[in-house]
Write a protein that binds this DNA or RNA. Structure first.
Lengths: 171, 171
DNA sequence: GTCATGTATGTAATATCATAACATGTCAAG
DNA sequence: CTTGACATGTTATGATATTACATACATGAC
């Protein structure tokens, strides 16, 4: 069982998916999709923004803004917080990344482009994060909203609990 | 339409429910229920904790920890952050209050004692907050979790959008 | 081309939110 | 009346996020 060291390295438990898979593939495909989507929408995927997304995809973790900043700065980009926050905000706005509030962190979107209402499953033991599409959750939320006359624009759904590995190990 | 002044006063838009209702009644009933629940569970609802809950209930808003602290300090309690955070953490733990992460704020629970998975509707125009029970959302989330072997313990559901009043005014 | 405009980036300074660590106080069980 | 568990107070610091302003770069009008 991985310790509670927090985010930042897959080894520390910040991995964005529980099952084993090909990270390089995710990164390549993710970037390609981002390029295509940006081209289509007219959004400007500039070097900092592109690199920021790449960092999120490569790390395959939820990363804090300052962790992203550190990596950007090491590559010659600005080293003040707004540099990271602006790039991350752009990515979130474009649906290429998500903000995970419980962790004060950001993760690359696993299903960019598709209209999706992601649910995040966060393991409290190892901090791993998985993103799952959950249309049913969105529908249920909107049904509740209608009851009080509220118009839903975005929803944040974060579930805390135990990932399969930690549930096994802990119990 | 109220301005985006943030939390802290119902006038500023932090009200926890959209519909008009009797605040004094909420406060009284909320405190009574909290007393009863604490007595039943053996939790110690000490003066700071009691007063903290009362502040949340009376303000009828989502309040930041430092806003709560300010009010506590004005009444002779400690005036350092841990005083507020400890009391708030206790209330959240006991299910008497909720943390609203999008606002970095806390609000008294509107349905304490009942097993409930609350959904928060946050108006992006006036910051008002409404808490609604949404069992269907919890069920949908758990269904998605089962698909990947995740064990859900707590869920946070926050919907951003427009409250009835702002939707009317804005459109 | 070059100029005006909007957008993006870089930087400094600061605001806001949250916790660690330790000392002191309170209360009930033994 | 002592001990142990919990609660509170305080200091200090850490982590997260934003404001404000200066500079640079792209794009389209002319």
């Amino acid at each position: 069982m991985a310790g509670p060291e927090g985010r930042g390295t897959p080894a520390a438990g910040g991995a964005v998916a529980f099952a084993a898979h090909d990270h390089a593939h995710c990164t390549g495909e993710g970037m390609a999709r981002a390029e295509a989507l940006s081209a289509a929408s007219g959004a400007r995927l500039t070097p900092v923004r592109r690199r920021t997304l790449e960092i999120l995809l490569q790390s395959h973790c939820a990363l804090g803004a300052y962790e992203v900043l550190e990596r950007l700065a090491a590559e010659g980009f600005g080293n003040q917080p707004p540099v990271a926050y602006r790039a991350l905000d752009f990515l979130v706005e474009q649906g290429l990344a998500h903000r995970i509030r419980r962790l004060n962190a950001f993760a690359a979107c696993m299903h960019p482009g598709e209209a999706h209402s992601p649910v995040f499953f966060i393991c409290r033991a190892c901090n791993a994060v998985a993103e799952a599409p959950a249309e049913a959750v969105r529908r249920a939320t909107e049904a509740a909203a209608r009851g009080i006359g509220f118009t839903v624009e975005r929803t944040t759904v974060e579930a805390l609990g135990l990932c399969p590995a930690c549930a096994e190990a802990g119990a």
